[in-house]
Design a protein around this nucleic acid. Structure first.
Length: 271
DNA sequence: CTTTACGCCTGACGGC
DNA sequence: TGCCGTCAGGCGTAAA
């Protein structure tokens, strides 16, 4: 399940292979993704030279001269760089062939991913325009979270997972960051003081940066066939560990559904 | 406006 | 062993 760290790792992994290269052809084997890929998608994208690979939230932006290729990995999507001629496997839905002879291959079993061809400024696209700041940017800090949370009575975990508040904080890292910051996931967002939001903003940054570092080591070679089972797990202190002792106090970790999502926390350390 | 529920999909898993 | 029901999970969208 690609969270921000995996998307960022993917960005870093594919960038050297596609930056400066021209897309010579596009093959769409399965257009039924999150939004159906239009008939003329392949024709529009073909011929573009990619100048840079950027990321906004969990969207990858492959910028080219004539437009921008915007990709989302959903929850089961992945991108891989393979040699030309590599036979497609199951769920290999789209190929972008480059003038280097390599192929950028999009695989997505659950098809929650998406791809768009944008000829306008990506930031003005309806999917990107409403998004909050990047958690690793200077715009994001405790003061921002504090101000944004005033008047919001939703649980703080729901609040920080809202992409209009801050992007890229997925379900796993929300639990992890709240535990690190000592904040109970059910606490109403408006009932948390500035100092605690500063701790939370720092925790979100730290957890994401640590995960990016871990993803970087695990997903170094994108031409490899799969082989990355549970690379997150070893770094997780609460997620998926219901019943195990809290690393801080030893109290068995709890598991509840908050906002329709599995949530893990310590009822003793987190208030 | 804020908040909540739903649905898209498939693989994994548990029960029988 | 095999079949089947259940559920996770990002996130846009409809509904409340």
């Amino acid at each position: 399940m690609p969270e921000l760290p995996e998307v960022e790792t993917t960005r870093r992994g594919i960038s050297p292979h596609v930056s400066g290269r021209r897309i010579t052809s596009v093959t769409v084997r399965e257009p039924r993704l999150r939004w159906t890929v239009p008939e003329d998608f392949a024709r529009q994208v073909a011929g573009t030279r990619i100048t840079s690979v950027e990321r906004r939230a969990k969207y990858l932006l492959l910028r080219g001269g004539a437009g921008t290729l915007m990709l989302h990995l959903g929850m089961s999507g992945s991108l891989r760089v393979v040699p030309s001629g590599t036979p497609p496997a199951a769920h290999d839905h789209v190929d972008f062939r480059f003038d280097s002879g390599r192929v950028l291959r999009f695989n997505d079993p659950r098809r929650f991913g998406s791809m768009h061809w944008l000829t306008v400024d990506p930031e003005s696209h309806p999917l990107l325009a409403p998004l909050g700041p990047e958690p690793l940017s200077a715009d994001f800090d405790g003061g921002y979270l504090y101000r944004a949370s005033r008047g919001h009575r939703v649980a703080v975990k729901v609040f920080v997972m809202n992409a209009r508040v801050v992007v890229g904080v997925g379900n796993i890292y929300a639990s992890e960051a709240l535990h690190r910051a000592g904040i109970h996931p059910r606490r109403p967002a408006r009932r948390i003081a500035l100092a605690r939001y500063e701790a939370l903003a720092a925790a979100i940054r730290e957890v994401l940066l640590a995960a990016i570092a871990a993803g970087g080591t695990t997903l170094r070679d994108f031409t490899d066939s799969d082989g990355r089972p549970g690379y997150f797990r070893q770094h997780l202190t609460v997620y998926g560990r219901a019943g195990e002792p809290c690393g801080g106090c030893g109290t068995p970790l709890g598991h509840e559904v908050i906002g329709q999502r599995a949530t893990y926390f310590c009822r003793h350390c987190q208030r």
